[in-house]
């Protein structure tokens, strides 16, 4: 059986909000090390990989592997019934067909319980090999989100170029073109505003901005984001969690 407790329901609410626009139904695999999810969006352009380590929960118990087949939008609907600072408990018996969610206020004088029906989901999994990327950029998650939002007014695609001078985002459409360039920098007072670039060779890739904007909904989970890119390959975009991560593999647009 699974029993996992979080001190604040907002932690799970934010994670579900970060993935719900891309995923419909998917399996969450639970074992003694924590919860994991790997799922493709409907168009197979983005793969979401979520890891929530058992250390990230205030209490965690899972004696035997449990697969939770869930509709992510149904989970989001139920989570809307929880206050952000409620204590949240997830429970599922072995071979049960439901996930029980309990929301308690801190004084434990209100307890809400919701039972979410589980589904048998026949899901495709991709084998993602360990990859050395040509360029790794760590930057503010909020700045990335803002930059992409600005450029989405110009075009449905963004080109990202990374070299030793910095990282450049550009877009071109009917009304004209625009770009933002960030130089590597260290901000001693606000570490999350630093831009760190590790590079073995310069990279340039283009991506659909609508999908990118869905990915950056994870910005509420972490102050920084790690972008990893290699020419001609999907990018890896990671938001670190206190114990785990939300990671996206994002297929580029390539000249035909």
């Amino acid at each position: 059986m699974l029993e996992a407790k979080l001190d604040a329901a907002s932690q799970l609410k934010k994670i579900v909000e970060a993935i719900r626009d891309m995923l419909g139904e998917c399996n969450i695999e639970c074992n003694e090390t924590g919860l994991a999810l790997q799922s493709l969006d409907k168009s197979h352009i983005v793969l979401v990989s979520l890891l929530l380590g058992s250390d990230g929960f205030s209490e965690y118990r899972c004696d035997r592997g449990v697969t939770l087949g869930l509709n992510i939008n149904s989970l989001a609907t139920v989570l809307r019934c929880a206050n952000n600072d409620d204590i949240l408990t997830l429970r599922s018996e072995d071979r049960a067909n439901e996930l029980i969610l309990t929301f308690e206020d801190s004084k434990a004088d209100r307890i809400s319980e919701f039972n979410l029906r589980l589904m048998d989901i026949d899901q495709e999994y991709l084998a993602i090999p360990e990859t050395e990327y040509a360029a790794t950029v760590v930057m503010s998650a909020a700045v990335l989100q803002r930059t992409l939002r600005d450029l989405s007014a110009l075009s449905e695609a963004v080109t990202i170029e990374i070299d030793k001078e910095g990282i450049r985002f550009s877009a071109e459409g009917d009304l004209g073109k625009g770009s933002t360039h960030f130089k590597p920098c260290v901000d001693m007072e606000n570490a999350e505003n630093s831009i760190n670039i590790t590079l073995s060779e310069p990279v340039s890739l283009s991506f659909n901005l609508q999908y990118f904007s869905n990915i950056t909904k994870a910005s509420s989970l972490s102050s920084t984001v790690t972008l990893q890119m290699t020419a001609g390959m999907p990018a890896q975009i990671e938001y670190k969690l206190p114990s785990g991560h939300v990671r996206y593999y994002f297929a580029p647009k390539i000249e035909d």
């Binding site: 999994y125 991709l126 084998a127 993602i128 999907p234 297929a251 647009k253």
Partner: peptide, 14 residues
């Protein structure tokens, strides 16, 4: 013009 790729063009099914 650039063409949108799918992840299945890069990664095999597990």
């Amino acid at each position: 013009t650039p063409v949108q790729n799918n992840l299945s063009e890069f990664y095999a099914l597990a």
